[in-house]
Amino acid sequence: MMAEKQTPIYDIARSQGAAFVDIGGWLVVDAFGGEQKSIPAMTRDVALLDRSARAKVLVDGAAASAVVERAWDVPHLAVNGGAVHAQGAVYRLRHDRYFLSAPPGLEATLESTTARAMRQEDGLLTITDVTHGQAELWLLGPAAAELLSRLCGLDFHPASFPNLTARESSVAKTAQLVIRCDAARQRAYAIVGARSLGAYLWQTIIEAAHDLNLLLCGEALLLALESSKERDAGS
């Protein structure tokens, strides 16, 4: 039997009626209730997705900046800044730490591409694949910022938190990395943190959204959003 990989949300999602699809050996939620939910559009709509299977890599070192810029051909970033590239995105968390993000299965690519750009004079550089160790929950839709502000004291106003910003703070009393990563013309936030807290965070987000229109969604929603975006672009 082929080994299958489960995210920390797998058990809860199954009990909440999810249907799964295999992506790179991970059991990923396709949709809840067997149907693709409606697209978040109304002010009180927000979708919650488990995207913990996504590739996540940490790059640590005094020369992290130089190496990452070289490897991924991205501009120089200030702390908390981010940039996208062909395979995914990079975010600068500290002077000497970067967080690399990509779709599931690309962790080896993230590691090797970054490693190849290392030079002798860069000094010690440590590249760590933390894909298995972190939950990654996405909030997407017009009410995403409002829901997050029930659990997190950061200022989500666009002026303080523009797209592709990454900040580490406290969400529901746990240490999390919050990334604004708008997708398919929707406001979106990724909350990345310890895997062992994933189930707690999922439940707490659901409870906090008691008076909002929370949609539990899977990858099928994002596909639907992407294709609707293409349709709009083409029309």
Partner: peptide, 14 residues
């Protein structure tokens, strides 16, 4: 406020 008591579980919890 909302009950928020962080709890950690292992991958084999279920």
């Amino acid at each position: 406020g909302q009950q928020m008591e962080p709890v950690k579980v292992t991958p084999v919890h279920d």
